[in-house]
Write a protein that binds this DNA or RNA. Structure first.
Length: 242
DNA sequence: AAGTTGTACAACCGCCTACGA
DNA sequence: TTCGTAGGCGGTTGTACAACT
């Protein structure tokens, strides 16, 4: 899966915690260019990190739409239920929790929720070494298909012609479809959730960003022009929360 | 006040899969 | 078909900070 944008010069990759400056560089670069190949992001953003590290930082911390608040009782209940069905499929569980990342769910489970399990059963809860050996028969588990992954553009607030956030009939979102060709659908993003966090109706924002190439029918100039505004809007919303 | 222990979560590691050459 | 590489995922470790002694 080579990437012709990835020049090869090996740079000594920095490790450890990210500085605010690094965060800013990564955020600026991705909002301006999208990520595409993560290795090239690291190089072009002037970061002495490897692509994986950049991806992780973006997905788990910098990506707009992430909730930074404590898990609600409802979210915890969802995690418990889904874990009982899926086992340690953190990315899939996270898809059902808009604004949460797989890492966040995993951490919360390991540090808190796991302790809430009944002590009687101290087997590792639903360890599923084999996909076919789920503790709950597939037929019984809710056979919900994984929620569609969201595209780069999906988290961009799209404003209608009148500047409102009503997405119906306006904005480029109406042209953006999920990557699943067999189940192609236009997502219905929702800008205002009760908690004031950017959210997406009936979708898992944790799905991750896809390479720009996968976004079809979009005027990329419009898309990129909107990113700055989108981020500003996002930060404004976040500012209201704290 | 200083040292120790516990907790939360950010980040890394290693493996697996998909994909292009 | 094989090989190399990037991306994705789950497990694990590292770090910062709070609570406790």
């Amino acid at each position: 899966m080579g990437c012709n944008m990835c020049e090869k010069p090996k740079v000594t990759n920095k490790k450890g915690l990210w500085s605010p400056d690094e965060d800013q560089k990564l955020k600026d670069y991705i909002l301006k260019h999208g990520h595409g190949c993560w290795t090239s992001v690291a190089l072009r953003a002037g970061l002495q990190r490897n692509g994986k590290s950049c991806r992780l930082r973006w997905m788990n911390y910098l990506r707009p739409g992430l909730k930074r608040c404590a898990f609600t009782a409802e979210e915890e209940s969802t995690v418990m239920k889904l874990h009982a069905v899926m086992g340690n499929k953190w990315s899939q569980i996270a898809m059902h929790l808009p604004g949460r990342t797989d890492n966040e769910v995993k951490n919360h489970w390991n540090t808190y929720l796991r302790k809430k399990l009944p002590k009687v059963d101290n087997r590792k809860p639903n360890r599923v070494p084999d996909e076919n050996k789920s503790p709950i028969p597939v037929s019984e588990s809710n056979q919900q298909l994984p929620l569609p992954k969201l595209l780069f553009a999906d988290w961009i607030p799209i404003f209608g012609d009148n500047g409102s956030s009503n997405l119906e009939g306006g904005g480029i979102m109406s042209h953006v479809r999920t990557e699943s060709s067999s189940n192609s659908q236009v997502l219905s993003p929702e800008l205002s959730q009760p908690d004031g966090v950017l959210g997406w109706q009936d979708s898992g924002i944790c799905g991750g960003l896809q390479p720009m190439e996968q976004i079809s029918d979009v005027n990329f100039h419009d898309l990129f022009a909107l990113t700055e505004e989108a981020y500003t809007h996002f930060e404004f919303n976040q500012a209201l929360l704290f």
